[in-house]
């Protein structure tokens, strides 16, 4: 029997922690194409994802879950539509300590919603840091509808990422239920 695959996309602005989130739960070494950052404005970290991150979780003998991370910088937004094809749902990751990226996160969210009307959740990463914005403030800044799930997260912690993935999957189940009714 052929193995089925499902895909979850992790998106968000540059340096939001997408690669780290996937790395925390992937059973394989995350396949990514990282490149030394050359732009001054992007020198928050030394390397960045220029193609995509690719993680994998084997569900059982017949089913595999792939996690795809999108490149954060706008100049790679041509990749987003390709990555969004056939996804189960998506996660919009924001860096809670960098409010200057919230506007961009909102733009990415709108773009992905336009590409694919699949369930999504918004995740506030780096909530363990002292200067992290509160969830309430982030919700207002991102103009999120109260019905949209906004979760705290620390992408480097497996347990935190696990909760995030489960919440997205529950949102997908709710969507299936509402479609049925």
């Amino acid at each position: 029997m052929q193995t089925q695959t499902v895909k979850i996309v992790v998106t968000g602005p540059f340096n939001a922690g997408k690669t780290e989130l996937i790395r925390s739960v992937s059973e394989i070494e995350v396949v990514n194409t990282e490149k030394k950052v050359t732009s001054e404005s992007e020198k928050v970290k030394n390397s960045t994802t220029v193609a995509m991150d690719f993680g994998r979780i084997t569900v059982d003998n017949d089913l595999v879950l792939f996690l795809f991370g999108t490149p954060g910088q706008k100049r790679f937004d041509f990749m987003w539509e390709i990555l969004s094809e056939g996804m189960l749902g998506f996660i919009v990751l924001v860096d809670s300590t960098r409010p200057e990226t919230f506007r961009e996160a909102r733009g990415i969210l709108e773009t992905f919603r336009a590409y694919a009307p699949t369930p999504y959740i918004v995740v506030a990463n780096k909530q363990d840091l002292a200067d992290a914005w509160s969830l309430e403030d982030i919700r207002v800044a991102l103009r999120l509808d109260p019905a949209i799930k906004l979760l705290p997260c620390t992408a480097k912690k497996k347990s935190s990422v696990k909760t995030v993935l489960l919440e997205l999957l529950y949102a997908i189940l709710e969507e299936l239920d509402s479609t049925k009714s």
Binding site: I57, D60, L63, K162, L166, L169, Y170, L173, L176
Partner: peptide, 14 residues
């Protein structure tokens, strides 16, 4: 639903 539940069960074991 069955497919999503299988993924959920697997994620719970991580």
């Amino acid at each position: 639903r069955n497919l999503v539940n299988r993924v959920i069960d697997r994620i719970k074991t991580i």
